[in-house]
Design a protein around this nucleic acid. Sequence first.
DNA 1: CGAAACTCCTGAGCGC
DNA 2: TGCGCTCAGGAGTTTC
Length: 277
Amino acid sequence: MPELPEVETTRRGIEPYVTTSPITKVLVRCPKLRWPVPKGLNRLLKGQQFHSVTRRGKYLLLQCDAGILMLHLGMSGCLRIVDSNIKPEKHDHVDVLFENNKVLRFTDPRRFGSVHWLSQASHPLLDKLGPEPLSSAFNAEYLWEASRRRQVSVKQFIMNSAVVVGVGNIYACESLFMAHIHPEKIAKQLSRSQCELLVLAVKKVLKKAIKSGGTTLQDFRQSDGKPGYFKQRLLVYGRVGLACFTCKHPIRRTTQGQRSTFYCNHCQLKGKSRSVN
DNA sequence: CGAAACTCCTGAGCGC
DNA sequence: TGCGCTCAGGAGTTTC
């Protein structure tokens, strides 16, 4: 389940490989992903060379002269660089082959991921995205303004990609714990200082995760692409019934928007912000 | 407009 | 050993 740190780790991992050799072929084994893989990718990309790999939210953008190959990893997708003699397996849906005998291989068992072709720099799926969480545009003032008339819970609010991109379920839980904010608090009831705390927490938790994801970068090529966050210590996510690291009360689990939420009912306050210096 | 339900998919874990 | 069930979840789409 790639979240933004895993996507960013993937971006950094593949960029040096895919931007240094021309494309010789695109092979689509299974076009049935979240959306159908566009036809004619081989014709469009053959002979092209990617200049850069950028990221917008959880979308990866591989740019070449003819256009942009846009990828989303969904929940179970991963991208690896493998040698061309490595046989594809069951869920290896798309290969981009390069002249230097490397292959960019898109694997996705659950097929929630997607592959898009953009002939220009815009796309409907990118239009409504909120600011990048690690940019200065994502700040306390912005979050406070954006939340003013929002009746939804703060957890669902920050997981909304129109509010801020890249905050998935795990990091939403972790950020709210760090900010001492109850996940069921109504968004419009956030104080300015809570917005400040939450913004700082989101940035901190994502930066930390990207940093730990970076440790897998060195063996990105031909690695199994296991996400880095399993290595880091999650404070609340998945810890139902276990003692909170701060206060020792048991971590609780609830459901919000058909999604599991983990939190500490003692550390995370529903009402007024606890005093923070 | 906002909010909630619905949808896609398969592997893992579990009870029997 | 294997069947059937439930759950997990990103995020776009539909419905109210």
